[in-house]
Computed example of a mutant assay.
Amino acid sequence: MMWKRIGILLCVFFLAACSNASEEPTLGEDALLAKRYLEEKGYEIVSYKGGDTSRFEKEDLLDSPVRDTWSVQTTPPDDYIGRDIKREHFVVRNHLLDDQYELGQTNVLVLIDDGDIIGGTSFPDSKEPLMGAPYSLDGKTAEELHPDYWTWREQWETKYSE
């Protein structure tokens, strides 16, 4: 009888652990800030995928993916070098990329530094692997944000290789 109870308890704990694994991550303070920001921009939140923290140094600005991320920001990276940047990941609807790729929803990463939103990126929500650089939070390419892209790129390389 005791082994039966132990078996039942183990099954209950196993099922509880499995059910928590399929739930969305909990929205912390930064995630709630990012969610409100996205909703104010007119995006419908489909799901929250979680958050993480990243850090980059000056030399990282010459390499993908750090350069690609900062090439689609309106804020220069200088004030954020060596700092922990929080990245909150959501899937949204009503985004420019929804129809462009006919997928109906878009992944967005909101970049936050010490409680302030400093930018973000977007990319199509595809089950298939995608190649290429991210879009800005609003779905613009680096070339759209920097009309003379190659001049901008040369200036970037010169500035961050010093």
Rank of each mutant, 00 (worst) to 15 (best):
G139H: 02
L33W: 05
V72W: 13
E144D: 11
K86Y: 11
I118D: 15
I81S: 10
Q155C: 04
D113Q: 10
P65S: 02
E59R: 13
E24C: 01
I8T: 08
P134N: 04
T69Y: 14
T151S: 14
H89Q: 12
E102M: 08
Y149E: 12
I118L: 12
S136D: 09
T158P: 06
A31G: 06
R36P: 00
F56S: 08
G104L: 12
S136F: 04
T53S: 08
E88I: 06
D79M: 11
L62F: 08
P76G: 09
I81V: 02
T121N: 15
K86N: 12
K58H: 04
S64L: 01
G28P: 04
Y80I: 02
E162G: 11
G132R: 09
V108N: 14
G28S: 02
A31T: 01
K159D: 11
D30N: 07
D99E: 15
A142S: 11
T106N: 10
W156V: 06
K49G: 02
A16W: 06
R93M: 13
K159Q: 14
D98H: 09
L137M: 07
D148H: 07
E29S: 07
L109Q: 10
S64N: 11
S71N: 13
W150L: 13
S71P: 00
S136H: 07
D78V: 00
V91M: 12
L27R: 00
G28A: 05
H95Q: 10
R55A: 04
Y37D: 10
Q73R: 02
Y80G: 07
A21V: 02
I8Y: 09
L9S: 12
E128L: 10
W156P: 09
G132F: 10
L145W: 10
Y101E: 12
M2L: 02
N107V: 05
E24W: 06
G120F: 05
I8G: 00
